[in-house]
Design a protein around this nucleic acid. Structure first.
Lengths: 105, 105
DNA sequence: TAAATAGTTCTATATATTTGGAACTATGAA
DNA sequence: TTCATAGTTCCAAATATATAGAACTATTTA
């Protein structure tokens, strides 16, 4: 992963509505959620939601699939795991970390 | 962890210089690095660096200690681990994830 | 076909962030 | 003391981001 990709992903997550959207998709994974449901559940106007979904898609954190007039959004957990690896790359000079190992997803 | 804390931490990391600073501190952990070294190594003017270090400190991602006229900065890995837990909380409805488990730090 | 529904794009406004020179503070060295 | 060094704070300009109404596109239902 390159720095620009990581910054893009982190910036996508660094906003209240988008963080809520992403976490909702993580929790429902691998089941998708459509914009209508997210708009209602999170109380975000649809134009605003659409903007945020695009940001998350651009960052590779979610994917979209068309199903008739609905759209299905899913969390892309691989990207999240790649990001975490990048953030903690070669942590503690490669020696034993002072933190207990934690499972990601 | 609350949404606001997570957004603050993510926003702190969502910037090129700050991401580089944080990763350098993660890699040197638990050894600290001082601003002078970071300024030179990453080629960031000291006023700009100071601004970024403050953002990372505010977010709880790094800590500072005074040593004479130097300052010692360290990564706070606990915060990073808490953030990761928050992002992936209750992933996949608590069932087996499709991703292999990855160690955080 | 016409009407309803789901989502996206367009747009202008409002808000927040990044930048780095210059001035400032505090410590250590001569 | 006086000078040098390490860092921080102040500031104003440049840049980027978030917001949501209205208009648009595409699909389903009547």
């Amino acid at each position: 992963m390159k720095s620009l990709e990581a910054v893009t992903a982190l910036a996508a997550l660094a906003q209240d509505s988008r963080l809520a959207i992403f976490r909702a998709l993580v929790q429902s994974a691998p089941e998708p959620i459509n914009p209508g449901h997210l708009s209602e559940a999170l109380d975000i106007p649809k134009a605003t939601l659409s903007f945020h979904l695009k940001e998350l898609s651009n960052a590779g954190l979610i994917s979209a699939e068309n199903e008739g007039r609905h759209k299905l959004y899913r969390a892309r957990l691989e990207t999240m795991n790649t990001l975490i690896d990048y953030l903690l790359e070669n942590c503690c000079q490669g020696t034993q970390c002072p933190q207990p190992e934690k499972p990601a997803c």
